[in-house]
Design a protein around this nucleic acid. Structure first.
Lengths: 207, 207
DNA sequence: ATTTTGTTTAATAACCCTATTAAATAAATT
DNA sequence: AATTTATTTAATAGGGTTATTAAACAAAAT
């Protein structure tokens, strides 16, 4: 409703918030219109279908969700230092977008078509990055700096431990009544613990 | 529709399958009736409301989901052996109920009332078990057998790594076309990896 | 100033949803 | 056999949903 911020943007913005909160199916175009302050038909005028609108939002969120698979730091710091930073960066990204894990898991499980489209997309785009990481990791294992582990298992471990706390946030907020400050602290602590757990878990056996 | 298996059971059974597959809101009482082979009104006759029907199913699933929080093995094996077994038992339970993680996460995030009711219930029922586990773990840490870690972080790590693969199953099945046998193998391998990761992650620093 | 284009709304078609009602059928009890 | 009770169905109220349409309004271009 800002003067040069047009209604199309407003709708997109409101839809994003609602979808993140409740997922695709629990948000109606009427809800979106109400929040954006416009007529329900306008949502369809700009985006034609609800599915369309959702796609535009979901794609970007999914990339963030898989950050750990889709970025590569080629500075000359040691591997473990870079890995640690990558885990932290992923976690920080999720802190800024706390509902992403819920949205992604939810829609990916529920909607076969979405799954199919996204997986292919991401897979093709990031294969090269994955290969470089894979190569580096297996080299470190060869050198005996890291215990043997498959690249995919390690990445899955990281993603899983990074996202889990965000599934628990609604509980911490509404059941245990933590306030925003406490939640921030819990998240920071959890981040440290994930990094610690991962780093410990890849130490070679004989060291 | 079996002769002594009455329709009430049939409805419950079908509802369970559908809820596990799609969650509460994407399953209608009409869907349930169709699957059970009866009139839609009958679902309401036996269970009055859809919410009611769902509750009966969800409660049991939730307990399984938190198995790791709600069981205690007091055999005289060493702590780490029992921990390993507990992780495996939890994972095996999820193998038998693969959609539980999705259902639980989904409904717990979406529905404040469900959350509230269940959390209190579980919390009260299992506080004693949690305390015993906590006591044992911290004792092992004192003895230097395990690196310092909070009990809750350890349990969260286990749950998170145990459940994540079940979020990925739909993708493995429909996108990468793994068949049932391959999935079984993937799950077994993932179980081993989780156990390995956890056991490695709690080794004391100096060993 | 008027036409053209873009934005927004009210109205509505064509669904699907839960829950209830009364009526029909089947089973159990007297 | 007749009556009571339990099971099942058809019909429907009252609500919500997406998407489209035609009409109203505003802005830009001629």
């Amino acid at each position: 409703m800002n003067k040069d911020n047009n209604m199309e943007q407003q709708i997109l913005q409101c839809a994003e918030e609602l979808f993140l909160e409740k997922g695709f199916s629990l948000v109606s175009t009427t809800d979106i219109a109400k929040k954006a302050g416009c007529n329900q038909a306008l949502v369809h005028y700009y985006f034609r279908t609800k599915e369309n609108l959702f796609q535009q939002i979901f794609q970007a969120k999914f990339t963030k969700f898989l950050y750990i698979f889709t970025t590569f730091d080629d500075s000359d710091e040691p591997f473990t230092t870079r890995l640690r930073k990558k885990i932290e960066a992923h976690f920080d990204l999720l802190i800024e977008n706390r509902q992403i894990p819920f949205l992604v898991i939810n829609e990916l499980i529920l909607n076969e078509e979405r799954r199919s489209a996204l997986v292919k997309n991401i897979y093709n785009k990031n294969l090269e990055i994955y290969r470089r990481f894979d190569h580096e990791l297996q080299e470190e294992i060869q050198k005996g700096n890291i215990r043997p582990i498959s690249t995919i298992d390690l990445l899955i471990n990281i993603v899983s431990m990074n996202i889990i706390i965000f599934f628990m946030l609604p509980m911490l907020e509404s059941q245990f009544n933590f306030d925003e400050e406490e939640i921030t602290e819990i998240l920071q602590q959890r981040k440290r613990e994930v990094v610690e757990t991962i780093m410990c878990s890849i130490r070679p056996q004989n060291k």
